[in-house]
Structure formats: C-alpha cells, structure tokens
Amino acid sequence: MSAGRRSGLSNRGVWIAILLVSLVLAGVVSFYAASTPDGLTKVSEDQGFARTETTHESDGSPLAGYQTDGVANGRLSGGLAGVAGVLVVLALGSGVMLLVRRRPHGGEADAEADAPDSERV
C-alpha cells in the first residue's frame, strides 16, 4: 500500500492521534458544548410530547448525564465522565472487533483480509 502513503506517519501514530483527539474532545472541549436542548428534545417540547418521556433506568449510574458522581467541579466532573466514556467505548469496541476477527470458520474471508498484512510497515 505504499502508493497510499503520503507521510511518514505510522499506523500507530494515526491511532494515537485519533485517541488523543477523542480524549481531548470528550475530556476538555465538551465543557464548551452548547447546553441548549438537542434537536429532538426541542421538537418534543415545541410539539407537546416532551411530557411523555419516562424515567431512565440508568439515572442512578455514577456517570448519568455525563457528570461524575461525587465530583463537585463541573469542568472536572464532565471531563472525567467524557474520558471514562471514551475509554469504555474504545475497550468495548476493540473487544468486539477482536471477537469478529477471531471467530473461526470462513477461512477464505480471512485469507483475503490478511493479504495486505505482508505490506505492513
């Protein structure tokens, strides 16, 4: 795949960059996100069906509402929740991908998918 490469950035370099960007967005930038109601919430208020919303089963979660339980500082509370979320999603997402790749059967698909490995840098 050398034709596709325009820089010396390695696979690992790109992966770390995406992770860092995600952590900064969720951990820091999220504090500055708009706090006005989201599109559907606003429409439900305007159209008069917001009242049909019922309680959430996870309201007691320590991270409910993207805030960390027991952390008073809003910036820290939201930031921690964001970082925790990114890491949990990364772990769960990567786990699913590992499972998908590991499942036996379908050897022909594996052979095809593994072909580019020889070109890895």
């Binding site: 992966w15 995406i18 992770l19 960007v21 995600s22 952590l23 967005l25 969720a26 930038v29 999220s30 996100a33 708009a34 706090s35 006005t36 989201d38 993207y66 964001g82 979320g85 990114v86 890491l87 999603v89 990364l90 772990a91 769960l92 997402g93 990567s94 786990g95 699913v96 991908m97």
Partner: peptide, 15 residues
C-alpha cells in the same frame, strides 16, 4: 474500528 467508536462517542458530547 475501536478508535472510530471512541471518536464518535467523543463528538456526540459536543453539541
């Protein structure tokens, strides 16, 4: 794939 999921989660916090 795992990183893209994490990135989507992060950007969904940014209204």
């Amino acid at each position: 794939a795992g990183l893209v999921a994490a990135f989507v989660f992060a950007t969904q916090m940014l209204n």
